[in-house]
Design a protein around this nucleic acid. Structure first.
Length: 325
DNA sequence: AAGAGTGGCAACCGCTGCGGA
DNA sequence: TTCCGCAGCGGTTGCCACTCT
């Protein structure tokens, strides 16, 4: 760990009275007290008003990654690992997006965990399974199996099959758009007969079931949980907050967009949703009407907020948040 | 016991987007 | 419209602790 004292490299900062490196307990106390008493404002003001010789950026980072009261400490549980791998297969290195679905965990923590543990595991497994495998040839959606996490070979595989289409790095062309739509519709078990699979799209992107079982609404829940934003399963079913729609621009930052806006990116999902909803209304039986309403409400709902997210995620039996301070 | 190698993690760096002036 | 400050993000670095030889 870095030493709290100024390094020689940072001597220039002496003039600026700005410290770098590890935070001392005194600094932590100052920041913690200030944040608890005054709340977050402009971070440069926080640094100044709290009497810290740190830049606002440093204060923000320290608060977010270490001092925040709702941080969950300790090792990642196997369920969290699985969730991280799954989310990473969907989102790539959008650590903040992944962290948003793991309450009490920070993007930095998840990033470090991924780079130090999971990546290594994937690499090992890759080298075991294919002698020519290379780290750089990482492919989303291979994560789950390569990392040794168990997945259903039924619906899960179907999900994995079409998930790359939603890689944020590329925007579907109009022709691909139609092809993808048809492909998705064809593959969505929920639009067919029998138990409704948890695979569906909401306005914020694809939602996936990963836990096995059929809930009382007739929704088939596959191994691992449901990626959706509506708690429509039986009590005890696991739900993960929805994935936001992903901008397909070249921005390195993932754009979090309102699901209600009507830009071209979201129209992609809007089209999917409209088709799904049409199919839903045609194919679903009467006793699913209530669920349909829930879907429709959800599909037109705006972006989820943190509070809602916490409510949703807190219903996960497999995520232990008891350690959150 | 000691040095080398490695892992884990806190913190920094550089970049981008956004909002206000 | 442009500029500036800020927040936030992902990549990278640096250092301590642990393990290995």
């Amino acid at each position: 760990m870095r030493k709290p004292e100024l390094s020689a490299k940072n001597n220039s900062n002496i003039n600026n009275k700005l410290r770098k490196g590890l935070w001392s307990p005194e600094e932590d106390d100052k920041l913690m007290n200030y944040m608890l008493n005054s709340g977050q404002g402009c971070w440069s003001d926080v640094a100044r008003n709290a009497g810290l010789q740190r830049c606002g950026k440093s204060c923000r980072l320290r608060w977010i990654n270490y001092l925040r009261p709702d941080l969950k400490r300790g090792a990642f549980s196997p369920q969290e690992e699985e969730l991280i791998v799954h989310l990473h297969s969907l989102l790539g290195n959008r650590w903040s997006q992944i962290a948003a679905r793991l309450p009490g965990r920070t993007d930095n923590e998840i990033k470090n965990f991924w780079n130090s543990t999971i990546k290594k595991r994937l690499k090992n497994m890759s080298s075991n399974t294919s002698p020519n495998g290379s780290d750089s040839s990482y492919e989303p959606n291979k994560d789950l199996n390569m990392a040794g996490f168990t997945t259903s070979n039924t619906h899960q595989d179907q999900h994995a099959d079409f998930m790359p289409m939603f890689n944020s790095s590329s925007s579907p062309s109009p022709s691909m758009h139609a092809t993808v739509l048809n492909s998705i519709i064809d593959r969505l078990p929920m639009l067919d007969h029998g138990p409704v699979s948890g695979g569906f799209f909401n306005a914020t992107g694809p939602c996936f079931s990963t836990q096995s079982g059929v809930d009382h609404n007739g929704f088939y829940l596959e191994n691992g949980g449901v990626f959706g934003s509506v708690n429509i399963g039986a009590e005890g079913d696991m739900y993960v907050p929805p994935l936001e729609s992903v901008s397909t621009t070249s921005d390195h930052n993932l754009k979090v967009e309102s699901t209600c806006n009507t830009d071209t990116n979201n129209s992609y999902f809007d089209d999917i949703n409209s088709i799904i909803l049409n199919n839903c209304s045609n194919k679903r039986t009467e006793n699913r009407a209530g669920v349909e309403n829930l879907f429709q409400q959800e599909l037109t709902m705006g972006e989820w907020d943190l509070e809602e997210l916490m409510n949703d995620v807190s219903s996960f039996p497999f995520l232990d948040f008891s350690n959150i301070q």
